[in-house]
Amino acid sequence: MTTPPEVVSAEVPATPDFVQVLRNVAAGVAARADMPIDQIEEIRLAVTEAASLLLTEALGTAIRMTIRRDDDLVDVELSSDRTTSSWRSDRIETSWAWIVVSGLTDEVQLDREGAGAPSIAFVKRRDRNPM
């Protein structure tokens, strides 16, 4: 069974207070994708860490999150609205937050679009974990 992909996006002010909103949106989409709750929680955590990297390193005024839900995965991209920044990939990729995001997800990518805006994208595949 396949369902057409769904895309949900949200943009929030780049302040720690709004990270919770992004977490909840991501969790809601993951629940719709029928992810088991342990994976939903890991998506929440990954969003939190990715957002905190953008907050501390990209220094924009807004964070945009786009989630594509496909049949057996969610693809989450968080990006800053700041096009020129102190965003340094070497520093990002050795950071603790980056390791956490990598550890919690199946694929992670820095600045996927190469569009100039700092971004962190990750894919989490649904684990059916059949017993």
């Binding site: 629940a31 992810m35 088991p36 709750i37």
Partner: peptide, 16 residues
């Protein structure tokens, strides 16, 4: 409910 389902199914349940 989560504990019960987890034991029954041997995996994390979904929200549904």
């Amino acid at each position: 409910t989560v504990s019960t389902l987890w034991q029954e199914m041997g995996r994390a349940p979904t929200v549904r």
